[in-house]
Design a protein around this nucleic acid. Structure first.
Length: 556
RNA sequence: GCACCCGUAGCUCAGCGGAUUAGAGUACUUGGCUUCGAACCAAGGGGUCGCAGGUUCGAAUCCUGCCGGGUGUACCA
């Protein structure tokens, strides 16, 4: 519908003024119409004519050319062309589906990326939810999506935790791990990380030991060691971490990952590749380390292999990138991380581009902001003052109890997911355990409620829904909003911005609630027509919620 | 120092490939439940869109400078 009209207008422009123009119809305020365009304003400059004259001429032509779809063409303001669709055309808009812009493509989406042996904080919850909804968007656009989860099971942070674990156990004795109760494992590990981190910063001797432990972890992987006491401790606590991640994903009810890629799996390939490319001049030696001089391409220098001979995160990312390429030959690889890695990732991708241009050019890095506590304090797992991912869910449940409405788990999840999804990706999120979970206003529960109400009508009503004709004002407003769905999803997919879905669904639900308040469905003369409308509305809302990973219960 | 991101109602945020009267939520004030679910609806007050220039018939939106905040800037991830 939209594109047909755009072509019709482009045709009219060409016929009247002889210029080729790409028309982009917008959705104006309802009082102006269903679609609007400012072509006349754009044309006035290049034609040297009054924009209103141009608009009037176009309006005249359109009134006859698109009379079938458009009931009214008006010129307003400085020269806007406002179009009002006929009821039939508006109803036809229900057929519009989101475009399959990525049909036939294989797209990798990497997100969540928690590190074993470190705590899962609120940021992990955020990045997991953002990644899940982006992966859903990509899938909705027709792509074959591969969900990847990359985590640092080797590296300095592991050295820190392992050092503290051994310290806490007293000696390298795996059986002593049994003293940690299963339920206490996550916090116990989190405490070890903080302990190791503090020791690294404050105690020179401990720092040297940690550096040594770190090397032992790399060696353990190189040797395939699963039997030494040190290795047994490592593999056991690593599994504890993976179990804990699984618990978070289970509680969040996010789509399952297709593959977990531990850093240890790509370390060798990364190290080897960087060494090879060092020979070829992509990398260079500097102060005992191997670096990439990003300054040559307007970025900054980065260390890929440190002076200890160990690969840094950079080299491992090289290994990861090549592993993805070798295993999937993807059309696009999306990586979702926090903002602080923006410039880091640019250097890494610039380096990879030197010797593996294809995966580098097909990689897209999306970033989100940090989760802040009320008052603007950033959370840090290094200092230990963290709100963990599961604590956020717990806080949500408590806040839900406090409202007296006793929301179930479905509603709690909707509240949390929506609170994190409704903001544009990129900015920081202020998390207020009390407010972000509020069950009213622009929230997940509001949307679920607006859905359940509609389903309730449908369940109670007898008789058949009928086709939509001779619409009244309130009915038309609701239908108009419903038909915007496909356009909104297309926009969210194009920008990979799930918040557009939130904004739209909230407006849709508001439109319905207002309709509900002012129009009776059951028992009204127009029951059949209104049932059809309510049905369309409920299905649309449910579809949108699904894209956000939020359920649409029939009752609540 | 340099690079990147951000600065819109008290608070939390949409809007930013320029355009019809800057929008929501929340908080505050007020009205609406004997009829389909009031987790709702209806109405009201509240903004020099950080500041100053520039481009344009037209700027919250584009450009430049400044101020304020955040992040990154060699062996952390």
């Amino acid at each position: 519908m939209k594109s047909e009209l755009e072509q019709a207008i482009a045709g009219a422009v060409k016929e009247l003024f002889g210029t080729e123009l790409q028309i982009e119809l917008t959705r104006p305020d309802e009082q102006f119409g269903d679609f609007a365009t400012n072509v006349a304003l754009q044309l006035s400059k290049q034609l040297g004519k009054n924009p209103r004259e141009i608009a009037d001429a176009l309006a005249d032509m359109l009134r006859t050319n698109v009379a079938e779809q458009v009931s009214d063409v008006s010129v307003a303001g400085p020269g806007f062309l406002n179009l009002k669709l006929t009821d039939a055309a508006l109803v036809a808009g229900l057929e519009m589906q989101p475009a399959k812009t990525h049909a036939g493509q294989k797209i990798l989406v990497e997100y969540s990326d928690p590190n074993p042996l470190k705590p899962l904080h609120a940021g992990h919850l955020y990045t997991t939810l953002v990644g899940d909804s982006i992966a859903r968007l990509v899938a909705a656009s027709g792509a074959e999506v591969v969900r990847l989860n990359y985590g640092g099971d080797v590296g300095l942070h592991v050295g820190k935790s392992m050092w503290a674990i051994i310290h806490e156990l007293g000696r390298e004795e795996p059986s002593k791990l049994a003293e940690v109760a299963e339920a206490d494992r996550p916090t116990w590990l989190g405490d070890r990380y903080v302990q190791g981190n503090n020791a690294y910063d404050e105690d020179e001797a401990a720092k040297n030991e940690i550096v040594d432990v770190n090397k032992r972890v790399y060696k353990l992987h190189a040797d395939g060691d699963h039997d030494s006491p040190f290795a047994q401790i490592y593999w056991t606590v690593r599994q504890w971490s993976y179990d804990y991640f699984a618990e978070l994903y289970r509680q969040l009810e996010v789509e399952a990952f297709d593959r977990f890629i531990p850093e240890s799996e790509v370390t060798q390939l990364g190290l080897q590749t960087v060494q090879e490319q060092l020979e070829k001049g992509v990398f260079e030696r500097s102060d005992g380390a191997v670096i990439f001089d990003g300054e040559k391409v307007g970025l900054h220098k980065r260390v890929f292999i440190n002076s200890e001979g160990l690969p840094t995160y950079e080299a491992k990312d090289v290994g990861l990138s090549l592993t993805k390429w070798n295993d999937y030959h993807f059309d696009e690889s999306i990586i979702i991380t926090a903002n602080e890695q923006v410039q880091y990732m640019q250097v890494v991708i610039a380096a990879i581009k030197q010797f593996a241009p294809e995966p580098a050019e097909r990689t897209r890095h999306l970033t989100h902001g940090v989760v802040k506590l009320q008052g603007g304090v950033k959370m840090s797992s290094r200092k230990g003052n963290v709100v963990t991912a599961l604590e956020i869910l717990e806080a949500a449940r408590e806040a839900g109890q406090a409202t007296g409405t006793n929301p179930n788990e479905e509603t709690i999840l909707a509240a949390v997911k929506y609170a994190f999804a409704k903001n544009r990706i990129g900015g920081d999120i202020a998390y207020d355990p009390q407010e972000s979970i509020a069950l009213e206003g622009n929230s997940g529960p509001y949307l679920q409620y607006a859905h359940a109400r509609a389903r309730s009508i449908l369940a109670k009503a007898e008789g058949q829904a009928r086709e939509l004709t001779d619409l009244q004002a309130g009915e038309r407003s609701l239908l108009r909003k419903i038909t915007e769905y496909a356009e909104v999803v297309d926009k969210a997919v194009a920008e990979l911005m799930p918040h557009h879905i939130c904004t739209y669904l909230y407006e849709l639900a508001q439109t319905f609630n207002s309709f509900y308040e002012h129009n009776r469905v059951i028992g009204d003369d127009r029951q059949a027509t209104r049932l059809a409308l309510v049905q369309q509305y409920a299905d649309t809302l449910q579809g949108g919620l699904t894209l956000l990973g939020i359920t649409a219960p029939e009752r609540m």
